[in-house]
């Protein structure tokens, strides 16, 4: 007989029994051990129908195709750049993926495009079985960034930063007038009209990071930004 041994939003540790029996299915962060579904992580449970998941509370960023990442160029090579993306795996940016324009490597210096320590907003376009990661700068919003602020948050908290359908990041943008890019690898770029607005956005992000796993977060962020209360109430 199948039985659920947990409910949603519980903090569980690796090995903990989440459900018994074959009617439940292990989602991400959970695994099957015979008749038992166990947690494979320190995380928060999420039960949806028969599916039992564990959402991680921490951990390093592992690239997936389609992710937006903010990377720092750490090596300029003959026909590509090595980019550090706050992950155990480095990414490679090939010349062909670096720009919508044609780059003639024989006539130009690679550093004219991207030099050491420079920062890019890029998209992961390929992850192979050996965890070779390819990124691209060809696409809307993808570019080299030269100013503003880069801050680092726990990559596990990125979904909360973004919010449902981008609601949280939109809220901070509206409240501060800053341009904000939240990348899946935990780096966030803030570029505002002035330093005060950037700092306001930075503090809002820190607030979300510190209180990511608590309820009523949206309201507190609105309050921090000095925005009027939402009539329908927060998340």
């Amino acid at each position: 007989m199948s039985e659920l041994k947990t409910q949603s939003r519980q903090v569980v540790v690796p090995g903990e029994t989440l459900a018994t029996g074959l009617d439940y299915l292990p989602g991400n962060g959970a695994y099957r051990d015979g008749e038992i579904i166990r947690s494979g992580l320190l995380g928060i449970t999420s039960v949806a129908g028969q599916l039992v998941k564990v959402i991680p509370l921490g951990g390093r960023y592992i690239p997936m195709e389609g992710d937006i990442v903010i990377g720092i160029v750490d090596e300029v090579r003959f026909s590509n750049w090595s980019v550090e993306i706050n992950s155990p795996y480095k990414a490679q940016l090939k010349v062909a993926d670096a720009s919508n324009r044609f780059i003639d490597t024989r006539r130009s210096d690679m550093t004219d495009f991207f030099d050491l320590d420079e920062t890019v907003i890029a998209q992961v376009i390929g992850v192979d079985n050996n965890m070779n990661i390819n990124i691209s700068l060809r696409g809307p919003g993808l570019m080299k960034i030269k100013d503003g602020k880069i801050i680092l948050v726990n990559p596990a908290k990125v979904p909360r930063m973004i919010g449902k359908n981008g609601s949280m990041v939109r809220l901070i943008k509206e409240g501060t007038g800053c341009n904000i890019t939240v990348a899946q690898n935990g780096r966030i770029w803030i570029k505002g009209p002035n330093k005060d607005k950037e700092n306001l956005a930075l503090k809002a992000i820190k607030l979300i990071e510190d209180e990511a796993h608590t309820a009523g977060l949206t309201e507190r962020v609105r309050e921090h930004l000095g925005m009027p209360k939402e009539k329908t109430g927060g998340a």
């Binding site: 960034i145 030269k146 100013d147 880069i150």
Partner: peptide, 10 residues
């Protein structure tokens, strides 16, 4: 790793 942007802001 410290980005050029962070160095500049420091």
């Amino acid at each position: 790793m410290i980005s050029g942007i962070t160095k500049k802001s420091i």
